[in-house]
Nucleic acid binder design. Structure first.
Lengths: 127, 127
DNA sequence: CCGTATCCGTCAAGATACTG
DNA sequence: CAGTATCTTGACGGATACGG
């Protein structure tokens, strides 16, 4: 059983509470790379390590491994090793992973759709 | 006019491109504190600096100032100074800010609703 | 090919003290 | 009240080399 959250904003959990485990979960999702990785796996299905890395310019192998491992620990992603030569490892969303891909996708779309408006309002926003 | 994105996944922008300004925007939103601050202002309307800080246990004044300033630069939040004694400063969402509060709220709700399931699947996920 | 292990520089962020 | 200024630390993250 999860630790209950003091505030009781919802039945059991509240991201605004510092001690609530769902805040840790939000931190995992509200992260630069997690949102992109989950979106990628949502759109393209199972992908190999290298495929993910080249689809995400700027991410290093270490950071990618780290993020994938955390997503795997949270049961959002599965990691499947195929005993082949050369070795092949594929990452794929779990059912839970697909369900979080929806709100994350909405956020990505919002960013893509509104960045022009923001630049029009203030060209120097990207500090 | 915004710089176009090379990939052309959407009409003009693509968060998967490292150079696209909408990726910078996503980084601003997909951030531990931004999601909470925007959600708070969405639920409670205009709030003073101290009110926000006490609603977000764990955030320091420096980090709060920094995040609010970036949100203000992106035209998601307004900052209003009232010439009173003692001084009062209120932060409030703009129309743009309210519109992004929806997808962010969906993400927060998802975290609150699914953390139990994740803990049941793997008690050690929060590494 | 798919990582892990290690080293190491940078800068994000906390603590503290101070100002309008 | 609502910050800013300064200092300090340590964790993040890049580079490299190596293992399964």
């Amino acid at each position: 059983m999860a630790r209950p959250c003091p505030s009781g904003r919802h039945d059991h959990h509240d991201v605004y509470s510092a001690t609530c485990p769902c805040r840790t979960l939000l931190d995992l999702l509200a992260n630069k790379w997690s949102a992109l990785i989950i979106g990628l796996l949502d759109e393209q299905g199972a992908l190999r390590f290298t495929a993910i890395q080249s689809a995400l310019p700027g991410i290093g192998a270490k950071m990618l491994t780290q993020t994938l491992r955390r997503l795997e620990a949270a049961s959002l992603v599965t990691r499947t090793i195929y005993a082949e030569v050369p070795p092949r490892v594929e990452y794929e969303l779990t059912e839970l992973g697909f369900s979080v891909a929806e709100p994350l996708g909405a956020l990505r779309s919002w960013a893509e759709d509104n960045v022009d408006r923001i630049e029009a309002l203030n060209g120097d926003w990207a500090v």
